[in-house]
Design a protein around this nucleic acid. Sequence first.
DNA 1: TACTCCCGCCACTGA
DNA 2: TCAGTGGCGGGAGTA
Length: 356
Amino acid sequence: MSWIVSPQDVDALTLQSSYSRKEKSLGVLVSNFMRLYNRDDVDLFGIDDAAAKLGVERRRIYDVVNILESIGVVSRKGKSLYSWNGFLHIPRSLHQLKEEGLREGFGLSSLCSNSDKVSHDDESEDSCSLPPDNQHNSSSLSKMDHKKERSLWLLSQNFVKMFLCSHDDLITLDTAAKVLLRDSQDSMHMRTKVRRLYDIANVLSSMELIEKTNLPGTRKPAYKWLGSKSLTEKGARLFNSTNESKKRVFGTEITNLSTKRNKTDCSSNYKKIGYKKHEEEETKQAAKSYVFGPFSPTAASKKNYNIVRTNNSGRLQDLEALASTHKPQYCNQDVTGLLGHYTEAWNKWFEELYRK
DNA sequence: TACTCCCGCCACTGA
DNA sequence: TCAGTGGCGGGAGTA
Protein backbone atom coordinates (compact mmCIF):
# COMPACT_ATOMS: atom_id res chain seq x y z
CA MET A 1 0.00 0.00 0.00
CA SER A 2 1.14 3.51 -0.59
CA TRP A 3 -0.13 6.67 1.04
CA ILE A 4 2.36 8.98 -0.56
CA VAL A 5 0.41 11.70 -2.25
CA SER A 6 1.02 11.97 -5.97
CA PRO A 7 -0.39 14.77 -8.10
CA GLN A 8 -2.81 12.28 -9.60
CA ASP A 9 -4.09 11.49 -6.16
CA VAL A 10 -4.73 15.06 -5.20
CA ASP A 11 -8.08 15.38 -6.86
CA ALA A 12 -9.19 12.03 -5.61
CA LEU A 13 -8.15 12.89 -2.08
CA THR A 14 -9.87 16.21 -2.24
CA LEU A 15 -13.09 14.59 -3.30
CA GLN A 16 -12.72 11.58 -1.09
CA SER A 17 -13.73 12.35 2.44
CA SER A 18 -14.59 8.80 3.44
CA TYR A 19 -12.73 7.19 6.25
CA SER A 20 -9.81 4.97 5.36
CA ARG A 21 -8.31 2.83 8.04
CA LYS A 22 -5.01 2.44 6.23
CA GLU A 23 -4.28 6.14 6.23
CA LYS A 24 -4.27 6.08 9.99
CA SER A 25 -2.18 2.98 10.48
CA LEU A 26 0.61 2.99 12.99
CA GLY A 27 3.04 2.21 10.17
CA VAL A 28 2.08 5.34 8.27
CA LEU A 29 2.23 7.34 11.47
CA VAL A 30 5.75 6.11 12.17
CA SER A 31 6.80 6.94 8.65
CA ASN A 32 5.47 10.46 9.03
CA PHE A 33 7.05 10.67 12.46
CA MET A 34 10.44 9.85 10.93
CA ARG A 35 10.06 12.45 8.24
CA LEU A 36 9.19 15.01 10.84
CA TYR A 37 11.95 14.40 13.34
CA ASN A 38 14.76 12.53 11.62
CA ARG A 39 16.74 15.69 10.95
CA ASP A 40 20.06 17.13 12.04
CA ASP A 41 18.46 20.05 13.82
CA VAL A 42 16.08 17.97 15.92
CA ASP A 43 17.32 17.19 19.38
CA LEU A 44 14.23 17.21 21.55
CA PHE A 45 10.57 16.88 20.75
CA GLY A 46 7.37 16.95 22.74
CA ILE A 47 4.43 14.60 22.73
CA ASP A 48 2.03 17.47 22.15
CA ASP A 49 4.13 18.87 19.34
CA ALA A 50 4.24 15.51 17.59
CA ALA A 51 0.54 14.92 18.05
CA ALA A 52 -0.34 18.34 16.70
CA LYS A 53 1.99 18.18 13.71
CA LEU A 54 1.00 14.66 12.80
CA GLY A 55 -2.68 15.26 13.40
CA VAL A 56 -3.17 12.35 15.77
CA GLU A 57 -4.07 11.92 19.40
CA ARG A 58 -1.42 11.88 22.07
CA ARG A 59 -2.26 8.28 22.80
CA ARG A 60 -0.94 7.20 19.40
CA ILE A 61 2.30 9.11 19.91
CA TYR A 62 2.85 7.19 23.13
CA ASP A 63 2.54 3.95 21.18
CA VAL A 64 5.10 5.09 18.64
CA VAL A 65 7.66 6.51 21.06
CA ASN A 66 7.43 3.47 23.31
CA ILE A 67 8.36 1.20 20.44
CA LEU A 68 11.02 3.56 19.10
CA GLU A 69 12.47 3.86 22.58
CA SER A 70 12.78 0.10 22.81
CA ILE A 71 15.31 0.16 19.96
CA GLY A 72 17.04 3.35 21.03
CA VAL A 73 15.74 5.74 18.39
CA VAL A 74 14.32 8.03 21.03
CA SER A 75 14.75 8.32 24.77
CA ARG A 76 12.56 9.88 27.40
CA LYS A 77 13.90 13.06 28.93
CA GLY A 78 10.98 14.24 30.98
CA LYS A 79 7.29 14.79 31.07
CA SER A 80 6.04 14.85 27.49
CA LEU A 81 9.62 15.37 26.39
CA TYR A 82 11.79 13.01 24.39
CA SER A 83 15.20 13.28 22.80
CA TRP A 84 15.69 12.16 19.24
CA ASN A 85 18.68 9.83 19.05
CA GLY A 86 18.17 8.76 15.48
CA PHE A 87 19.24 5.63 13.68
CA LEU A 88 22.82 5.82 14.88
CA HIS A 89 21.66 4.10 18.04
CA ILE A 90 19.86 1.19 16.41
CA PRO A 91 22.90 -1.09 15.82
CA ARG A 92 24.09 -0.51 19.36
CA SER A 93 20.64 -1.18 20.77
CA LEU A 94 20.28 -4.34 18.73
CA HIS A 95 23.65 -5.57 19.93
CA GLN A 96 22.65 -4.95 23.53
CA LEU A 97 19.30 -6.61 23.03
CA LYS A 98 20.95 -9.64 21.53
CA GLU A 99 23.33 -9.96 24.46
CA GLU A 100 20.47 -9.56 26.90
CA GLY A 101 18.36 -12.01 24.97
CA LEU A 102 21.06 -14.66 25.03
CA ARG A 103 21.53 -14.16 28.76
CA GLU A 104 17.80 -14.44 29.32
CA GLY A 105 17.50 -17.62 27.32
CA PHE A 106 15.84 -16.46 24.15
CA GLY A 107 18.19 -18.62 22.15
CA LEU A 108 17.60 -21.83 24.06
CA SER A 109 15.07 -23.32 21.68
CA SER A 110 13.33 -22.74 18.41
CA LEU A 111 10.63 -20.51 19.86
CA CYS A 112 8.02 -23.20 19.36
CA SER A 113 7.74 -22.33 15.72
CA ASN A 114 6.36 -25.78 15.06
CA SER A 115 3.47 -25.01 17.30
CA ASP A 116 1.99 -23.03 14.48
CA LYS A 117 1.60 -26.21 12.54
CA VAL A 118 0.22 -28.19 15.46
CA SER A 119 -1.39 -25.91 17.97
CA HIS A 120 -3.39 -27.22 20.88
CA ASP A 121 -4.50 -25.68 24.11
CA ASP A 122 -3.03 -28.54 26.09
CA GLU A 123 0.32 -28.23 24.40
CA SER A 124 3.26 -28.65 26.69
CA GLU A 125 4.36 -25.24 27.79
CA ASP A 126 7.85 -26.46 28.47
CA SER A 127 8.54 -26.72 24.79
CA CYS A 128 8.86 -22.98 24.59
CA SER A 129 11.91 -20.93 25.33
CA LEU A 130 12.09 -18.80 28.40
CA PRO A 131 9.46 -16.10 28.42
CA PRO A 132 10.95 -12.97 29.89
CA ASP A 133 7.55 -11.57 30.78
CA ASN A 134 7.09 -14.31 33.25
CA GLN A 135 10.51 -15.08 34.55
CA HIS A 136 9.61 -13.89 38.00
CA ASN A 137 7.20 -15.22 40.47
CA SER A 138 4.13 -13.16 39.79
CA SER A 139 3.27 -12.92 43.46
CA SER A 140 6.56 -11.21 44.18
CA LEU A 141 5.94 -8.43 41.71
CA SER A 142 4.49 -5.05 42.56
CA LYS A 143 1.78 -3.45 40.46
CA MET A 144 4.42 -1.25 38.89
CA ASP A 145 6.47 -4.29 37.96
CA HIS A 146 3.40 -5.90 36.44
CA LYS A 147 2.69 -2.83 34.40
CA LYS A 148 6.29 -2.57 33.24
CA GLU A 149 6.24 -6.26 32.38
CA ARG A 150 3.36 -5.73 30.03
CA SER A 151 4.57 -2.47 28.56
CA LEU A 152 4.83 -1.99 24.85
CA TRP A 153 8.46 -1.02 25.37
CA LEU A 154 9.36 -4.37 26.93
CA LEU A 155 7.17 -6.34 24.57
CA SER A 156 8.87 -4.70 21.64
CA GLN A 157 12.32 -5.43 23.04
CA ASN A 158 11.42 -9.05 23.66
CA PHE A 159 9.98 -9.39 20.19
CA VAL A 160 13.24 -8.09 18.72
CA LYS A 161 15.24 -10.39 21.01
CA MET A 162 13.38 -13.36 19.58
CA PHE A 163 14.60 -12.50 16.11
CA LEU A 164 18.12 -11.75 17.24
CA CYS A 165 18.59 -14.84 19.37
CA SER A 166 16.51 -17.62 17.86
CA HIS A 167 17.48 -19.83 14.95
CA ASP A 168 14.13 -19.40 13.28
CA ASP A 169 13.99 -17.43 10.08
CA LEU A 170 10.33 -16.69 10.45
CA ILE A 171 8.32 -15.86 13.54
CA THR A 172 4.56 -15.65 13.61
CA LEU A 173 2.80 -13.36 16.01
CA ASP A 174 0.99 -16.33 17.50
CA THR A 175 4.34 -17.92 18.26
CA ALA A 176 5.68 -14.75 19.78
CA ALA A 177 2.56 -14.32 21.90
CA LYS A 178 2.78 -17.90 23.13
CA VAL A 179 6.41 -17.49 24.09
CA LEU A 180 5.68 -14.26 25.93
CA LEU A 181 2.69 -15.77 27.70
CA ARG A 182 4.26 -18.98 28.83
CA ASP A 183 2.34 -19.18 32.08
CA SER A 184 -0.93 -18.11 30.56
CA GLN A 185 -2.38 -19.73 27.49
CA ASP A 186 -5.68 -18.02 28.14
CA SER A 187 -7.23 -17.14 24.80
CA MET A 188 -8.13 -13.63 25.88
CA HIS A 189 -4.58 -12.91 26.99
CA MET A 190 -3.35 -14.33 23.74
CA ARG A 191 -5.62 -12.08 21.73
CA THR A 192 -4.48 -9.03 23.66
CA LYS A 193 -0.82 -9.92 23.27
CA VAL A 194 -1.23 -10.54 19.57
CA ARG A 195 -2.94 -7.15 19.18
CA ARG A 196 0.07 -5.47 20.74
CA LEU A 197 2.43 -7.49 18.60
CA TYR A 198 0.57 -6.31 15.52
CA ASP A 199 1.22 -2.74 16.65
CA ILE A 200 4.92 -3.44 17.18
CA ALA A 201 5.27 -5.39 13.95
CA ASN A 202 3.71 -2.53 12.03
CA VAL A 203 6.21 -0.07 13.43
CA LEU A 204 9.20 -2.35 12.86
CA SER A 205 7.96 -3.17 9.36
CA SER A 206 7.60 0.50 8.61
CA MET A 207 11.21 0.97 9.66
CA GLU A 208 12.12 -2.08 7.55
CA LEU A 209 13.73 -3.87 10.46
CA ILE A 210 11.37 -6.77 9.79
CA GLU A 211 9.42 -7.87 6.76
CA LYS A 212 6.03 -9.47 6.58
CA THR A 213 5.90 -12.72 4.66
CA ASN A 214 4.26 -16.16 4.91
CA LEU A 215 5.26 -19.46 6.41
CA PRO A 216 6.53 -21.68 3.58
CA GLY A 217 3.74 -23.60 1.94
CA THR A 218 1.05 -21.82 3.86
CA ARG A 219 -0.70 -18.48 3.91
CA LYS A 220 0.07 -18.05 7.57
CA PRO A 221 1.60 -14.61 8.01
CA ALA A 222 5.01 -14.47 9.60
CA TYR A 223 7.76 -11.92 10.02
CA LYS A 224 11.32 -12.11 8.80
CA TRP A 225 14.17 -10.19 10.37
CA LEU A 226 15.94 -7.71 8.09
CA GLY A 227 17.82 -5.89 10.80
CA SER A 228 20.33 -3.10 10.65
CA LYS A 229 21.93 -4.63 7.58
CA SER A 230 18.84 -3.66 5.65
CA LEU A 231 19.68 -0.06 6.37
CA THR A 232 23.09 -0.51 4.81
CA GLU A 233 21.79 -2.53 1.87
CA LYS A 234 19.16 0.05 1.22
CA GLY A 235 21.85 2.72 1.15
CA ALA A 236 24.05 0.66 -1.14
CA ARG A 237 21.16 0.22 -3.56
CA LEU A 238 20.56 3.91 -3.49
CA PHE A 239 24.15 4.97 -4.13
CA ASN A 240 24.88 2.29 -6.70
CA SER A 241 21.85 3.06 -8.76
CA THR A 242 21.05 6.32 -10.44
CA ASN A 243 17.72 4.97 -11.54
CA GLU A 244 15.32 6.42 -9.03
CA SER A 245 12.46 4.22 -10.13
CA LYS A 246 14.25 1.22 -8.67
CA LYS A 247 14.14 2.67 -5.19
CA ARG A 248 11.50 1.27 -2.94
CA VAL A 249 9.57 3.98 -1.19
CA PHE A 250 7.62 3.49 1.96
CA GLY A 251 4.29 1.84 1.52
CA THR A 252 5.04 -0.11 -1.61
CA GLU A 253 5.10 -3.85 -1.53
CA ILE A 254 8.48 -5.47 -1.03
CA THR A 255 9.43 -7.40 -4.12
CA ASN A 256 12.94 -8.41 -3.16
CA LEU A 257 12.12 -11.50 -1.18
CA SER A 258 15.60 -12.92 -1.47
CA THR A 259 16.99 -10.61 1.16
CA LYS A 260 19.19 -12.70 3.40
CA ARG A 261 18.53 -12.79 7.07
CA ASN A 262 21.49 -11.16 8.69
CA LYS A 263 21.26 -11.60 12.40
CA THR A 264 24.13 -14.05 12.47
CA ASP A 265 26.24 -11.87 10.23
CA CYS A 266 25.70 -9.09 12.65
CA SER A 267 27.10 -10.94 15.62
CA SER A 268 29.91 -12.61 13.73
CA ASN A 269 31.09 -9.32 12.35
CA TYR A 270 31.23 -7.89 15.79
CA LYS A 271 33.51 -10.71 16.83
CA LYS A 272 35.74 -10.43 13.77
CA ILE A 273 36.68 -6.78 13.84
CA GLY A 274 35.68 -5.75 17.29
CA TYR A 275 32.34 -4.39 18.23
CA LYS A 276 33.34 -0.80 18.79
CA LYS A 277 35.00 -0.23 15.47
CA HIS A 278 32.38 -2.16 13.56
CA GLU A 279 29.63 -0.32 15.31
CA GLU A 280 31.06 3.03 14.32
CA GLU A 281 31.41 1.95 10.70
CA GLU A 282 27.98 0.41 10.59
CA THR A 283 26.28 3.32 12.24
CA LYS A 284 28.05 5.82 10.01
CA GLN A 285 27.10 3.83 6.94
CA ALA A 286 23.55 3.35 8.10
CA ALA A 287 23.16 6.97 9.02
CA LYS A 288 24.53 8.12 5.68
CA SER A 289 22.42 5.79 3.67
CA TYR A 290 19.08 5.52 5.36
CA VAL A 291 16.25 7.24 3.58
CA PHE A 292 12.63 7.31 4.59
CA GLY A 293 10.17 7.72 1.82
CA PRO A 294 9.86 10.71 -0.45
CA PHE A 295 10.54 13.33 2.20
CA SER A 296 14.15 12.47 2.83
CA PRO A 297 15.56 13.80 6.08
CA THR A 298 18.37 16.29 5.63
CA ALA A 299 20.91 14.15 7.38
CA ALA A 300 20.45 11.35 4.91
CA SER A 301 19.73 13.34 1.83
CA LYS A 302 22.69 15.58 1.25
CA LYS A 303 24.53 13.02 -0.85
CA ASN A 304 21.37 11.90 -2.55
CA TYR A 305 20.73 15.41 -3.61
CA ASN A 306 23.97 15.51 -5.57
CA ILE A 307 23.07 12.32 -7.34
CA VAL A 308 19.64 13.55 -8.22
CA ARG A 309 20.95 16.91 -9.30
CA THR A 310 23.68 15.47 -11.50
CA ASN A 311 21.38 13.13 -13.30
CA ASN A 312 18.16 15.04 -13.23
CA SER A 313 19.05 18.71 -13.12
CA GLY A 314 15.83 19.61 -14.84
CA ARG A 315 13.79 17.41 -12.59
CA LEU A 316 14.12 19.75 -9.63
CA GLN A 317 12.48 22.58 -11.46
CA ASP A 318 9.75 20.19 -12.57
CA LEU A 319 9.13 19.10 -9.00
CA GLU A 320 9.02 22.65 -7.73
CA ALA A 321 6.65 23.69 -10.48
CA LEU A 322 4.51 20.67 -9.72
CA ALA A 323 4.46 21.48 -6.02
CA SER A 324 3.41 25.06 -6.63
CA THR A 325 0.69 23.96 -9.05
CA HIS A 326 -0.83 21.29 -6.88
CA LYS A 327 -1.96 22.56 -3.51
CA PRO A 328 -4.44 20.03 -2.19
CA GLN A 329 -7.19 21.11 0.14
CA TYR A 330 -8.23 18.53 2.66
CA CYS A 331 -11.40 18.38 4.67
CA ASN A 332 -9.36 17.52 7.72
CA GLN A 333 -7.55 20.64 8.93
CA ASP A 334 -4.95 18.53 10.66
CA VAL A 335 -3.94 17.02 7.35
CA THR A 336 -3.78 20.45 5.80
CA GLY A 337 -1.57 21.63 8.62
CA LEU A 338 0.69 18.63 8.36
CA LEU A 339 1.00 19.06 4.61
CA GLY A 340 1.83 22.71 5.14
CA HIS A 341 4.56 21.73 7.54
CA TYR A 342 6.06 19.33 5.02
CA THR A 343 5.82 21.85 2.22
CA GLU A 344 7.59 24.44 4.33
CA ALA A 345 10.32 22.00 5.36
CA TRP A 346 10.69 20.86 1.77
CA ASN A 347 11.06 24.41 0.47
CA LYS A 348 13.61 25.32 3.13
CA TRP A 349 15.58 22.22 2.33
CA PHE A 350 15.75 23.09 -1.35
CA GLU A 351 16.66 26.70 -0.65
CA GLU A 352 19.52 25.66 1.57
CA LEU A 353 20.85 23.15 -0.92
CA TYR A 354 20.66 25.63 -3.76
CA ARG A 355 22.63 28.10 -1.68
CA LYS A 356 25.30 25.50 -1.01
C1' DT B 1 -14.79 -15.62 8.10
C1' DA B 2 -10.39 -14.85 9.98
C1' DC B 3 -7.16 -11.60 10.32
C1' DT B 4 -5.71 -7.00 11.34
C1' DC B 5 -5.30 -3.13 14.27
C1' DC B 6 -7.60 1.66 15.24
C1' DC B 7 -9.71 3.80 18.82
C1' DG B 8 -10.64 5.51 23.19
C1' DC B 9 -11.88 4.03 27.94
C1' DC B 10 -10.07 4.06 32.25
C1' DA B 11 -6.64 2.73 35.83
C1' DC B 12 -2.49 4.16 37.51
C1' DT B 13 1.31 7.46 38.65
C1' DG B 14 3.55 11.49 40.12
C1' DA B 15 3.71 16.40 40.64
C1' DT C 1 -6.63 17.10 42.33
C1' DC C 2 -5.29 16.67 37.83
C1' DA C 3 -2.42 16.03 33.85
C1' DG C 4 0.38 12.59 31.90
C1' DT C 5 0.90 7.84 30.77
C1' DG C 6 -0.22 3.63 28.65
C1' DG C 7 -2.58 -1.24 29.24
C1' DC C 8 -6.33 -3.12 27.42
C1' DG C 9 -10.11 -5.00 24.66
C1' DG C 10 -14.23 -3.82 21.66
C1' DG C 11 -15.34 -3.86 17.32
C1' DA C 12 -14.77 -2.04 12.57
C1' DG C 13 -12.04 -2.43 8.30
C1' DT C 14 -9.65 -5.59 5.23
C1' DA C 15 -8.30 -9.69 2.65
